[in-house]
Each structure stands twice: as structure tokens, then as C-alpha cells.
Design a protein around this nucleic acid. Structure first.
Lengths: 133, 133
DNA sequence: CTTTAAATTAGGAATAATTCCTAATTTTGT
DNA sequence: ACAAAATTAGGAATTATTCCTAATTTAAAG
């Protein structure tokens, strides 16, 4: 497990140099330019391996396919539930206190990996005002 | 838009009475018992309508299909990234302060809908210890 | 450097999850 | 009771992802 592979290196490089939270499909499109013979299953398999290795994050979307994120610095995401836009932001969540609460309520020691906020961005809010909500 | 529909009522009822975070498929299986002629597309369509109406929440999973949650009281979710188990929990996030930070960093007024924690549960942690991580 | 075992690959088939399409039915407001 | 709008069942189509296999690449050991 985890032998060297050129393809995996190129995939990680693509994600690193395209900090736009690309989807698997977008990663494939960017990778195939540099490595024309690569297959989509190789891209999917390596994305999952890189997530396991914690070199990249999977960002769970409410609309459309999941997106991926190079791990360069700990940060949170706010994801618009309507348009799916992802915003990076930094917030000093009190993880110790959250852990303590999780422990009390769930009777389990949880490893907190990331905290994601789902909401509505300003664009979508103003669109909705014009319509019905 | 939003005429009365028996099917929608039954679907909401099913979700209300099965607070197990069911998937769309599970909701269909439960609904079809009460409404044998209902089609899966009707279930999917109404689930989305109920989410828009904020009667139910969509819970974004890391493994497997999304799950749904009757909105009876505001709470957060901790989702295990490995096994996909969902834990409900209550935590008094300082939403005002988070909003202020979002405003500062993103230059947008964001409506915070929910805050989700992704992590590793105790079972999965101890499994991993035995294996490789 | 050969040899061998393990890991990885390309390519496509298969599966899973969800949305879309259409004609028929139901609901709403008059 | 009627017309317009909304919703439905059923299935086709699409989207996203995983699985399968034989061939290739990599690592490690002599």
C-alpha cells in the first residue's frame, strides 16, 4: 500500500495549485492535461487515498458533487445551501469545550476533524426576497 | 405551488415518526407501506420541497447517500467520516460572533442555517488503531 | 542488475443516487 | 361545475462513483 505513483503526485499537484475547491470531475479535467492517459477511476481512487492520508479535505456539498481542498492551513467552510458556493474562513472554535460537550452527551470521545457551516449567502438571500421566501 | 398533497403529508409524517435520519430510499420504503402507489420520484421531489419549506433538514454524509431529519428542535450533528453514523447533539454556538467573523472575512451577511461537525467516532478510532493509522 | 511480490494503472462495465419527462389526475379558486 | 395550476406515477435519462480485470509499474531482496 502507498507505493509511489506519478499519477497520484500529479493529482495532488493539481489540487494544490487550484485552490478553487474542485470537484472530482474538475480534478480529472485538469489532470488529464498533464497526464493524458490517466483514467477517471484512477483519479477517484487517488482522491480517496489522499483524503485518507489527510493531504486533502473532502468538502460535503448540499448541491452538486463533493469538492476537494488542499490542506495547507486549518480553516472552516461556510457552504451556501442554495448555490453551493464555498467560502473559506477562519474561526477559533472552542474545540476543547465542544469535545467536552460531545463526550457528555454522546458518551464517546470524538475526534473533531472539521466544523462546517451551512447557510445562505447574500446573493441567494436577495434573490429569494424577490421571489417568494 | 404548494397545493395540498396527501403524498407529501404522508412523507412528512414518516420522517417525523422515524427520527433515525433516514435516507431517501428508506423514506420511500416506509412511505410505500402507507401509500402503495407512490413513486420514488414523488418521494424525492417532496423531500426537496420539505427541505425548502424548512420542515426537514438535509444531513450531508461523508459516506452513503444524504439523510433527512425532522426539524423539531434546533440541534447540531456530528457525523463520523468513516462509518457515517450521525449523532445529534446540542451546543450553544455563539452564532452572533460567528456571523460577525463571517461578515468581516467574506464581506457578506450570511444566514447561518446549521453547524455540522465531521469527525471520527470512538468505534472507528479503535478500529483504526488496530489496523494502520 | 535480475527476479518476484505487491501495488497501481487504464479502460470500461456496473452500480447507486437523483433528476427529468410526459400524460393523467388532483387540487384550488371561482 | 369548470378552468387553471399543481401534483402525480412510472419510467427513462443522467450524474457520480465504485468495481473489475489484465497489463504495467514499483519496491525489496538476492
Amino acid at each position: 500500500m502507498n507505493n509511489y505513483s506519478k499519477q497520484r503526485e500529479v493529482i495532488l499537484d493539481v489540487i494544490k495549485n487550484n485552490p478553487i475547491h474542485p470537484t472530482a470531475e474538475e480534478i480529472y479535467q485538469l489532470t488529464v492535461k498533464k497526464e493524458p492517459k490517466i483514467s477517471k477511476s484512477t483519479v477517484y481512487r487517488n482522491i480517496n487515498i489522499l483524503v485518507d492520508m489527510k493531504k486533502i479535505n473532502k468538502v460535503k456539498m448540499t448541491v452538486g458533487p463533493d469538492r476537494y481542498d488542499y490542506v495547507y492551513k486549518e480553516h472552516s467552510h461556510m457552504i451556501c445551501e442554495r448555490c453551493g458556493k464555498i467560502f473559506d474562513f477562519y474561526y477559533n472554535f472552542n474545540k476543547d469545550d465542544i469535545s467536552k460537550n460531545l463526550k457528555q452527551q454522546l458518551k464517546e470521545n470524538i475526534i473533531i476533524d472539521n466544523i462546517t457551516i451551512y447557510g445562505i449567502c447574500e446573493d441567494c438571500k436577495s434573490k429569494n426576497e424577490k421571489e417568494e421566501f
